[in-house]
Design a protein around this nucleic acid. Structure first.
Lengths: 151, 151
DNA sequence: AATTAATCATTAGGGCGCTAACCATTACCT
DNA sequence: AGGTAATGGTTAGCGCCCTAATGATTAATT
């Protein structure tokens, strides 16, 4: 039967921890009437200003087609607007609308709460170690992607 | 603008690390003609034998309706069969079929490879620390769920 | 200048997640 | 026994992920 032993696997711990984190985040977001991905769009726009859809998709680590539906819904909600770039008329720049500002304020508060809750009972040392090791995990896979891009 | 600073957030590291892990896993699984969730079904059945759909959903940390489609597809592929339980005719027990065995062998090998790659360049100490801290994160959210269940 | 190649957004189609609502079956309870 | 939960699986409807293919625009080539 070739037992696999989930508990031993790093993937298991990674998935359950991330699942718990995201579930808590989504739960806090629900009363605000917004989804996680919509919140992330507002976050990136708040941080970097208007972005093209391709740039936004890169930052969110999804493919451009995956973004279309989310932007459609947010546009319908009056949270943002797509404006074609005059210099390159292929591009749409995504602009947050005034209604987005107050929503973003509440969302950022949620994010900070969740962040604090996630690291409860951890020393600064432990937190730094955790981030460092998670970065190492990501790096262990990123190497391969780089090599693939060279072929 | 109330900057949020993604890099500082534990959630950011958690999501990117998990994303890299899962992307690599799915990529290895694709040539086997199977998806991640289908692989997970086979894994649980291999570990615990036939399970009801509700029990399977609990282990996979999803809701029972989310499992229906995946099981339908696997049944169509001839990987498993649903059999109604004689003692409680509400329940379906999910049984792996012979075709699933060879698939599971290859999948388990993939899982072990990814697992090894994820922890490359880490000492046993670091790995243990990482698992422990991830467990702590999960625990920080699990507490709340428990309290909610009491209300 | 005209053709070819690359880039951007979108649609189409499929996989997987959720909640709410619906049956069928079983458990509980007066 | 008979009515009322509670449980197990399903459907319906929506959100979000992917790849492959399309149309529009811009860049690069010859």
């Amino acid at each position: 039967m070739l037992g696999y032993d989930f508990e031993e696997s790093l993937g298991y711990w990674l998935c359950t921890a991330q699942h718990a984190y995201m579930a808590a985040f989504k739960e806090r977001l629900a009363p605000e009437g917004i989804t996680y991905r919509q919140a992330e769009v507002l976050a990136w726009l708040a941080l970097e200003g208007p972005l093209s859809q391709a740039d936004l998709a890169t930052r969110m680590m999804i493919e451009p087609p995956s973004l279309v539906g989310t932007l459609d819904r947010m546009e319908a909600l009056g949270l943002l607007a797509r404006k074609t770039c005059p210099e390159d008329r292929r591009k749409n720049f995504v602009h947050p609308l005034p209604a987005a500002e107050e929503v973003w304020q509440r969302i950022a508060a949620c994010a900070r709460e969740i962040r604090a809750q996630a690291s409860q009972g951890m020393t600064k040392q432990e937190l730094a170690t955790l981030k460092k090791l998670l970065g190492k995990v990501r790096g262990n896979f990123a190497v391969l992607e780089t090599l693939e891009n060279l072929s």
